[in-house]
Design a binder for these strands. Structure first.
Lengths: 213, 213
DNA sequence: GCGTGTGAAGATATTCACAGCC
DNA sequence: GGCTGTGAATATCTTCACACGC
């Protein structure tokens, strides 16, 4: 039974909310003031009832016969997701990938501020990437504390990903974005999201295969 | 009722298979010849019965009391997923992200060969990235045909993503890997996978929020 | 005895259908 | 009339429990 502010929210719902936020932001930028679940759904390839049901877990944001006030719903959802705060993130592994992540402006624009960069190779340590100096991974524990890092982004090779993750977990970090092509194991109170384009491709070839042969 | 070679395979199963393939490859590299669903599950954070059930959609690959022959299961799954073939891919949008994708060796290692690169900005067109010359996007249709491109990787800004996607779809490409931060709409016979680290972070903050306040 | 394979049961997630309000 | 919010129904996914083969 959906109700306000309860933590029995299905994870799949939580993972859809950011999409709603993004779509609402676009509508807002186009000066659209009101939107129906139908319109929002069309923009996202989701059914209207899916959206209404998802929203109902958090409150009654709409007006019957009318729809949702874009600004209001946006505010509410951003608050629900904690997107009205700033978050601090650190990147571990400053190779090609790590550097690309650090210089991608999209994170900062959404309130995810890169405040530290770590590597283990003596070569890169001390070099500057944007505003940050690459630190030795040995300083991880200290820096996570001193900079109150909320999220760690892992961009090390697969072989090192688990041991780096273990260190990160020991620092009491509860959110990890993992770019390494390996599924890292963490305690159940730590969230991990995987960014894994190769896996994504490999699940599409299943369908391609049955197509042309 | 699970059975051999039927296309009523749940999508969620298809999306787990590549993980199994990866884990099995690692086991193989460590010269491990036999693995139980329990062991495989532990390595992946999945229950053993999940694995057995998933595999049962495609055949009976194990031996009771013993487990699965690693090499055999690997072959079978790679075949099921079409990973025993080579695939051709093109990247559209050769900015920082697109260049990083083109120079990432992980795709080629897994049989995904980058055979073309496109951009719309006259500046980059004609420049060389690795083995490829960046082509004008106008050559898309011709090149998709001539190089028999299976998969298109979209790395253009959000604003252009939908129109580029529409062009790609018109070329009869059935698989798209989308790095643009927007959910593109496609006909139901086209598969899209989204690579969207910001969305991933935004669904984690929901949990972080309730943590420390 | 051990571990697979799988119907049946249980849990989750989505969709339907409609009451209620603007 | 149009659109939300939501119990109930349905569909999908996961887990249980156990028969069977090595």
């Amino acid at each position: 039974m959906p109700g306000k502010n309860n933590s029995n929210i299905p994870e799949v719902v939580v993972q859809r909310l950011p999409q709603y936020v993004r779509a609402l932001t676009q509508l807002h930028n186009r000066n659209i003031e009101v939107v129906s679940s139908k319109e929002l759904g069309d923009a996202l390839g989701v059914t209207p009832v899916q959206i209404r049901k998802d929203l109902s877990y958090f409150g009654r944001f709409g007006k019957q016969g009318r729809g949702y006030n874009v600004v209001f719903l946006l505010q509410e959802l951003r608050h629900v997701l904690g997107l009205d705060k700033q978050w601090t993130a650190a990147v571990i592994g400053i190779g090609r990938l790590g550097s690309a992540i650090l210089s991608y402006p999209g994170f900062g624009q959404e309130g995810f501020n890169m405040v530290a960069a770590f590597d283990s190779a003596p070569l890169g340590i001390g070099s500057r990437i944007g505003e940050l100096i690459v630190q030795n991974i040995d300083e991880l524990e200290r820096t996570v504390k001193s900079k109150a890092i909320d999220i760690v982004i892992i961009a090390v090779p697969a072989e090192q990903a688990q041991s780096v993750t273990d260190r990160v977990v020991k620092c009491r970090v509860k959110a990890i974005l993992n770019y390494a092509p390996i599924k890292v194991q963490v305690p159940s109170d730590v969230r991990v999201r995987e960014i894994d384009p190769v896996l994504a491709l490999q699940s599409m070839t299943f369908h391609l295969k049955s197509l042309h042969d």
